[in-house]
Amino acid sequence: MRILVAEDDFTSRTMLQRFLDGYGDVDVTVNGSEAIEAFNFALEENEPYDLICLDIMMPEIDGLKALKNIREKEKSIGVTPENGVKIVMTTALDSTKEISDTFYGSGCNDYLTKPIDLQRLTIILEKYGISKN
């Protein structure tokens, strides 16, 4: 299992990295530009990510633009939506309507609001068949 955590907040990034380490190999980036670069590199190496936790508000390129870029790349190489990387957006937004309109229309699979609830993350991972090593 390959996992990418794209998060600019040190505390959230460290917590996600430590928690997800039990699920597989975790790479970390601190902005959307690095996330896109890591995603593309993983594809080139024929070792794509299975899961990406993608923060919405990051420097350089925000999470929504990174998400769009990742989904466009998958489409360009023939990856169908059901076979694409599972992307869980992390956000400080808390309005259900705003979250639905913003994220699900953009191609993410799920979302977590901050502060991140690890029990909720566990439920999301189980929903997609992702289990600890």
Rank of each mutant, 00 (worst) to 15 (best):
S106G: 02
I56G: 01
S12K: 03
Y49W: 03
S106F: 03
I130A: 08
I87S: 01
S131H: 14
F41V: 12
D94R: 09
T91C: 06
T29I: 00
L16F: 02
I123A: 10
T11G: 02
E45T: 12
M58Y: 00
E126A: 13
E82T: 10
P48M: 07
M89K: 03
E7D: 04
I61Q: 03
T29V: 14
T14I: 09
P115W: 06
L121P: 06
K86T: 14
G22C: 01
D8Y: 00
K97C: 05
G84D: 13
I61N: 08
T113S: 11
K97G: 07
M89H: 06
T29N: 01
N69Q: 09
A42V: 05
P48N: 06
D62A: 08
T91V: 08
I99L: 11
Y104I: 04
L121C: 06
K97D: 15
G63M: 02
M89E: 03
F10E: 10
F10G: 00
I3K: 10
D117G: 11
R2Q: 13
N69G: 06
T90D: 05
G129T: 00
G84M: 11
A92C: 02
E98I: 11
T122G: 09
T11E: 00
T91K: 07
R71K: 11
R71E: 05
K65T: 12
V30M: 10
D25H: 13
D62N: 15
D110T: 06
A6K: 01
A66R: 01
M58W: 03
K73L: 14
G105F: 10
L54A: 04
D9K: 10
L118R: 02
L112W: 07
R120L: 12
G24C: 04
K68Y: 12
Q17F: 07
V5Q: 00
Q17W: 04
T90L: 07
E60M: 12
I3A: 05
V30N: 08
I56A: 03
D27P: 01
K73F: 15
P115D: 05
D55L: 01
G78E: 10
D110M: 08
S76F: 12
Q17D: 10
D110V: 09
K127T: 14
D8M: 00
D25S: 14
L112Y: 04
G22N: 13
I123Q: 13
S100V: 09
E34Q: 15
Y23I: 09
